[in-house]
C-alpha cells in the first residue's frame, strides 16, 4: 500500500538560551490510508511534540512530514486535531464551534445551507445535535470532547490527530467515547494518529502501536501490529488471547525495558 502519511527522519531540538535539549531523534513512521495508529510512551517522551509536528503547530529541526507525498509544515484543516482539553471556544455555542471550521474549509465548495446541514450531520455523528445551542460551559467533559471530535471531523481531514483525547475524562465516560471513536473509524474509514498513555486504550483502538523510548532523544522503540479483527468488542476482548498478548508486549516495553525514570 502507498504510504499516506510519512514521517521522515524527524529530529526535534529545543533551544533555550545556551541549553539545547534533543527531544526527538530519527523518527521514521509510515501510516497507510485508513489506518489507526497510536503512539504510546511515558510522559515527557515527546509524543505530544511529535503530534504537534505532524499538525504543523511545531516545526521540526530536521526531517519532514509528507502527506500524500507533499511536504506539510504549517497547520491546516487536512490534519485536524482533537485537543486534549477539548479547546472549544467558550463564547461560541456547540454549533458555532463546529461551524467556525466548516465555514473556512468549505467557504467556496458548499453553500450556506449545505454548510449548515454538514455541521448538523457531524454533530449527529457524535450524538451531540441535541445540544447545538448550548455553550461549552453548559455541557459535561465527555460532551465537550465529542464536540471537539465533531469539529475535527467536519473539516474532512485527511488525517485525524488525537492528542490524548480521553485523558481528562473519567473511566466510564472514556470507555463510552472510545467506543464512539471506534464506531466512527469503522464507518468513515479515517486515517487516525492518536497519542495516548493508556495501554488498554492503545490495544483496543489501534491497528499499530508505536512505542517510544524515554526522552531526552526519544526514538521509536518498537512498533507492534495489533492483529485483532474489527469490529472489536470491549467485553469479548477481555479474554481474547491475542488481545492479552498485545497488552503484555506493550506493558513489558513500558515497564521493564523502558521504565519511567522520574526526573531528579
Amino acid at each position: 500500500m502507498q504510504a499516506y502519511l510519512k514521517l521522515d527522519h524527524i529530529d526535534k531540538t529545543f533551544t533555550r538560551g545556551n541549553a539545547t535539549t534533543e527531544v526527538l531523534k530519527e523518527i521514521n513512521l509510515t501510516i497507510n490510508k485508513g489506518e489507526y495508529v497510536s503512539i504510546i510512551g511515558h510522559s515527557g517522551c515527546g509524543k505530544s511534540t511529535l503530534l504537534n509536528i505532524v499538525a504543523g503547530l511545531t516545526n521540526c529541526t530536521n526531517g519532514c512530514v509528507l502527506l500524500e507525498n507533499r511536504e506539510v509544515n504549517s497547520p491546516g484543516p487536512d490534519r485536524a486535531v482533537v485537543f486534549q482539553n477539548h479547546s472549544l471556544l467558550p463564547w461560541l455555542t456547540v454549533y458555532e464551534n463546529v461551524r467556525l471550521g466548516v465555514d473556512k474549509v468549505f467557504a467556496r465548495s458548499k453553500t450556506r445551507a449545505e454548510r449548515d446541514a454538514w455541521v448538523m450531520h457531524n454533530l449527529n455523528l457524535v450524538q451531540m445535535a441535541h445540544a447545538k445551542d448550548k455553550r461549552p460551559s453548559e455541557i459535561s467533559g465527555g460532551m465537550k470532547q465529542r464536540v471537539g471530535i465533531a469539529r475535527a471531523l467536519a473539516m474532512e481531514p485527511k488525517v485525524l490527530l488525537l492528542d490524548e483525547p480521553f485523558g481528562a475524562l473519567d473511566a466510564l465516560t472514556r470507555a463510552h467515547l472510545q467506543d464512539s471513536v471506534m464506531a466512527l473509524h469503522q464507518k468513515l474509514g479515517n486515517t487516525i494518529l492518536m497519542i495516548t498513555h493508556d495501554v488498554d486504550e492503545a490495544v483496543l483502538l489501534s491497528d499499530r502501536i508505536v512505542m517510544m523510548t524515554n526522552g531526552p532523544s526519544a526514538r521509536i522503540g518498537e512498533v507492534l501490529e495489533v492483529p485483532l479483527a474489527r469490529p472489536r468488542k470491549r467485553l469479548e476482548l477481555a479474554t481474547n488471547p491475542g488481545y492479552l498478548k498485545c497488552r503484555q508486549r506493550v506493558l513489558e516495553f513500558l515497564y521493564e525495558r523502558h521504565r519511567f525514570v522520574e526526573a531528579a
Partner: peptide, 9 residues
C-alpha cells in the same frame, strides 16, 4: 485557542 485558529487557518 491559537492552535485552534491555526488548524482552521
Amino acid at each position: 485557542y491559537r492552535n485552534v485558529a491555526a488548524v482552521v487557518q
